[in-house]
Measured scan of single mutants.
Amino acid sequence: SSEEQMCGTHRETKKIFCEVDRSLLCLLCSSSQEHRYHRHRPIEWAA
């Protein structure tokens, strides 16, 4: 659903897949302290 594609923290669309956590992130989350050094892919890659 579209609600699942929205970041609850930043209200941004989740467009990035974190390979380490195997989760979807928004651009702001992907550059956060928690995920900054993880490997990321565009969401299309994970589909």
Results as ranks from 00 to 15, higher is better:
11 R>N: 11
18 C>H: 01
40 H>S: 07
3 E>I: 05
9 T>Q: 13
15 K>G: 08
17 F>P: 07
42 P>I: 06
12 E>Q: 13
24 L>C: 09
43 I>N: 14
6 M>Q: 08
2 S>V: 08
26 C>P: 00
1 S>F: 15
47 A>C: 03
30 S>D: 08
21 D>N: 12
14 K>W: 05
45 W>M: 15
6 M>E: 10
42 P>S: 10
3 E>R: 09
40 H>K: 00
12 E>R: 13
12 E>H: 09
30 S>L: 06
38 H>R: 03
9 T>A: 09
34 E>T: 07
16 I>H: 04
42 P>K: 14
6 M>I: 01
10 H>L: 08
10 H>A: 03
3 E>S: 10
10 H>T: 01
12 E>G: 12
13 T>L: 09
16 I>T: 06
37 Y>L: 14
21 D>I: 01
43 I>T: 04
4 E>D: 12
45 W>P: 15
8 G>Q: 11
28 L>A: 13
27 L>N: 15
32 S>R: 13
31 S>M: 06
5 Q>N: 07
36 R>S: 09
47 A>S: 04
19 E>G: 03
2 S>C: 09
44 E>K: 07
6 M>H: 09
4 E>N: 11
29 C>H: 06
42 P>Y: 08
34 E>K: 08
35 H>C: 03
23 S>T: 15
27 L>Y: 13
16 I>D: 06
44 E>I: 06
22 R>D: 11
35 H>D: 01
14 K>I: 04
5 Q>A: 06
20 V>H: 12
20 V>G: 05
17 F>R: 07
35 H>L: 00
16 I>G: 04
10 H>E: 02
15 K>H: 01
8 G>R: 08
44 E>C: 04
33 Q>E: 14
14 K>G: 04
31 S>Y: 08
42 P>A: 13
9 T>M: 08
11 R>W: 06
33 Q>S: 10
20 V>E: 14
7 C>Q: 01
45 W>V: 15
31 S>A: 12
34 E>N: 06
41 R>Y: 03
41 R>P: 06
43 I>F: 15
13 T>H: 13
17 F>W: 14
43 I>D: 15
41 R>D: 15
10 H>D: 07
13 T>W: 05
27 L>W: 12
28 L>F: 06
22 R>C: 02
8 G>D: 12
21 D>F: 04
25 L>Q: 06
18 C>Y: 01
15 K>R: 06
14 K>C: 09
9 T>R: 11
42 P>D: 05
10 H>C: 04
40 H>G: 05
25 L>H: 11
7 C>N: 02
21 D>Q: 14
28 L>T: 15
32 S>I: 00
6 M>G: 04
7 C>E: 00
17 F>Y: 09
40 H>N: 00
35 H>W: 01
13 T>R: 10
46 A>W: 10
21 D>H: 08
40 H>L: 04
45 W>R: 14
33 Q>R: 08
17 F>A: 03
8 G>T: 12
37 Y>K: 13
42 P>V: 06
20 V>R: 12
42 P>Q: 11
26 C>T: 00
30 S>R: 02
7 C>R: 04
1 S>C: 01
24 L>D: 07
22 R>T: 02
46 A>T: 15
33 Q>H: 09
32 S>W: 05
12 E>S: 11
20 V>C: 05
28 L>P: 11
13 T>E: 12
24 L>V: 10
43 I>A: 15
26 C>D: 10
28 L>Q: 15
27 L>G: 14
23 S>D: 11
29 C>V: 00
27 L>V: 14
25 L>I: 12
20 V>W: 10
13 T>P: 15
21 D>M: 03
46 A>H: 08
18 C>I: 01
2 S>A: 09
36 R>Y: 02
24 L>T: 11
7 C>P: 03
47 A>P: 13
7 C>I: 01
2 S>F: 15
36 R>F: 03
14 K>A: 12
1 S>T: 05
41 R>F: 08
1 S>L: 10
14 K>P: 05
47 A>F: 02
11 R>C: 12
1 S>V: 10
7 C>H: 05
47 A>E: 06
34 E>Y: 06
47 A>N: 12
8 G>P: 14
41 R>Q: 14
22 R>H: 08
10 H>R: 02
17 F>V: 07
38 H>C: 01
18 C>G: 01
13 T>D: 06
45 W>K: 15
19 E>Y: 02
44 E>L: 04
43 I>L: 06
6 M>A: 04
41 R>N: 02
45 W>Y: 15
38 H>N: 01
2 S>I: 12
33 Q>L: 12
12 E>K: 15
7 C>S: 03
19 E>S: 05
33 Q>G: 10
36 R>C: 02
23 S>R: 13
30 S>N: 04
20 V>S: 11
44 E>H: 02
39 R>K: 11
5 Q>C: 03
20 V>F: 08
26 C>S: 01
3 E>M: 08
42 P>E: 13
13 T>Q: 14
26 C>I: 00
47 A>R: 13
27 L>S: 13
33 Q>V: 13
17 F>H: 03
